[in-house]
Amino acid sequence: MDSKKNVMVFIESRSGKIAEVSLELLSAAGRLAQELGGSVEAVAIGHNLAEELKILGHYGCQRVYYTDDERLTHFTSIPYAKTVVKIIKQCQPGIVLFGATTMGRDVAPRVASALKCGLTADCTDLQIGEHKIKDVTYKNTLMQIRPAFGGNIVATIVSPESVPSMATVREGVMKMIAPDTGKTAEIIQETCLLDDDDFLTEVLEVIREEKQVNLKAAQVIVSAGMGAVDPEAIALAKNLAKLLGGELGCSRPVVDSGVLDKDHQVGQTGITVRPNLYIACGISGQIQHRAGMSEAKRIIAINKDPLAPIFGLAHYGIVGDVKDVLGKMIKAYKTKS
């Protein structure tokens, strides 16, 4: 079989748990591999992960190349990058995907540099297509689609002349498929060939901070923009979110101005969400914000400017003052019968 048809995913684990982004990438890899007629593979690195790795099969992964070593318990750049390079050289997949996380963005460029292959950061879509360079047509090429110039344009990037094509994708961007517990992945143990000299980073301390909010899991998100930053408006938005069993989100300038924590930020450089209901309060609806919420099932926009772009994608538009409208919504919900 032609290994170039295979799609490989870098599996990220934090505190012994598989990161969601890796499962999302396996879901995307499944779609790409099906189109190519290849299989979905994974490269996993860590210590005592064998049990956890079983779930990769549920998401369509067929083979996991797993390197276990106590020294790999915590992520460090050189050991992880070298291990991924070794597995890629050995398996020769056509495509390799990484999460655009701090770990993925640390290891992927190092791997791409070592293999002298292309790497496209923060893709928002991945497709298979054709690319022509002079007289040569490259079939089955990965189309790496990403925002450019601050999100004002979308670029399609290809790297057909070097193998593999590599891309990073942010968490939440690819939809996770429903797990199939009947499916299993073959776990192939790889020997760790690293020297002690490869371990140049000493991890002195690891502090885990619980996220304050879990926007990705929320079914309802009430999101505050610069039109809703005063404490009273924020309190109302929070109040409504709580009433509806949802979470409080926000636009980037709200985070930049220190009103809410980064965990609340929706958008291109924040979190991509797909809730049942998204209520945009005092948000103008710039491209970079839309990138993170346009796939919500229902969108309500509240804005005092009738021409605000957000109304272009809202299912329901309410022109008015945020505090006024939120007050009415809270009242209406409390008195529902």
Binding site: K116, C117, G118, L119, T120, H131, I133, M143, P147, A148, G151, N152, I153, V154, A155, T156, I157, V158, S159, P160, E161, S162, I287, R290, S294, I299, P309, G312, L313, A314, H315
Partner: peptide
């Protein structure tokens, strides 16, 4: 190795 295949303006899906 990476080439820009095409560049498009962002099409905002309306509803």
């Amino acid at each position: 190795p990476t080439k820009v295949k095409k560049i498009q303006s962002v099409v905002l899906a309306g509803c």
